[in-house]
């Protein structure tokens, strides 16, 4: 909003006090949000003795990445002690194709539903949109059965299929809302110029789409990477994605409780989405607001 305090009559002792209060409030909540990250990070860098003898907020006396190495290579998940590594790559192998395919399908569908409107296009959109609102519990059981029939239960391709299907309503929503604001005249002009459906998509629409592509990819990436429900429901053992493995690691009760390893494992699991968020956070925010306020 307009900076009213800079206007004449805006400066007074009361105003300064309000300003001080404002910054205090902002900083207290900044601490609420940032402290857990600091605590987790510093715990992951301590050794077990230091954890037991120190407090939550004490900083590690020396930077020690042992827990990180252990979490990555050796930690036991269930009965196999392979560390998070194989599960991390499961997640990578699951996330990348699922993100790309659901984004492409979403773009093509959004394009068709807005720029080549046919009878019933709005109804089809509404029916697809409904998929955004269902609690996934209503599809877990039949999905588990179907994956079995398709012989892709407990495999990465199985999870890719699941994530494509249930990501589609969101990608279609994003692209449809973006494309609906691109003037129809462009399509008409290109049609008269002699370009067909795919030519227009390739030469006109896609070059205009980077903002929404970035938004959709970030959204899908965080959703799929962070998924736990589907991973826990449809995979066991070595087929699990990293979120499920992390939970198993943390809740494995045998042996000594290595809090530093738990925290390192949590950070490893969080790293990809955090990196994406730090690098492209601006688009992330824009995507959240565009997708959820308008949708």
């Amino acid at each position: 909003m307009a900076d009213l305090s800079a206007l004449p009559g805006g400066k007074s002792p009361w105003q300064s006090a309000a300003r001080f209060g404002l910054y205090t409030l902002l900083l207290i909540f900044a601490a609420y949000y940032i402290l857990p990250l600091i605590v987790v990070l510093s715990t992951s860098l301590k050794d077990l003795d230091e954890i037991r003898n120190g407090t939550l907020l004490s900083l590690p006396s020396e930077i020690n990445f042992d827990a990180w190495g252990y979490a990555w290579n050796e930690a036991c998940i269930g009965v196999s002690c392979t560390g998070l590594k194989p599960y991390f790559w499961n997640s990578v192998a699951m996330t990348i194709p699922a993100v790309l395919i659901s984004t492409l399908l979403g773009a093509l569908t959004g394009y068709s539903l807005t720029k080549f409107k046919f009878k019933g296009a709005n109804l089809i959109f509404a029916m697809i949109l409904f998929g955004c609102f269902i609690p996934f519990q209503v599809v877990l059981l039949p999905m588990a059965q179907s994956l079995g029939y398709l012989r892709i239960a407990n495999t990465v391709p199985g999870l890719v299929l699941v994530h494509i299907v249930y990501g589609l309503p969101f990608t279609v929503l994003f692209f449809r809302n973006y494309y609906v604001n691109i003037p129809d005249d462009l399509i008409k002009a290109a049609t008269i110029d002699g370009a067909g459906f795919f030519m227009i998509f390739w030469r006109i629409m896609l070059p205009l789409s980077p903002p929404i592509i970035v938004v959709t990819i970030i959204w899908q990436f965080t959703q799929i990477w962070n998924d736990f429900l589907f991973g826990a429901s449809f995979t066991t053992g070595g087929g699990q994605p990293v979120t499920v493995a992390l939970n198993n690691l943390v809740n494995t009760t045998t042996g000594v409780k290595r809090y530093n390893v738990d925290m390192a494992a949590a950070l490893i699991t969080a790293a990809p989405t955090l990196v994406v968020y730090v690098l492209a956070g601006r688009y992330f925010v824009r995507g959240l607001t565009a997708g959820s306020v308008k949708g």
Partner: peptide
């Protein structure tokens, strides 16, 4: 950025932390 970053993290990690 500080207020929003938790959104990028899985609930599993939030729970663990």
């Amino acid at each position: 950025t500080v207020y929003l970053y938790p959104m990028a993290i899985s609930f599993i990690i939030t729970g663990t932390a």
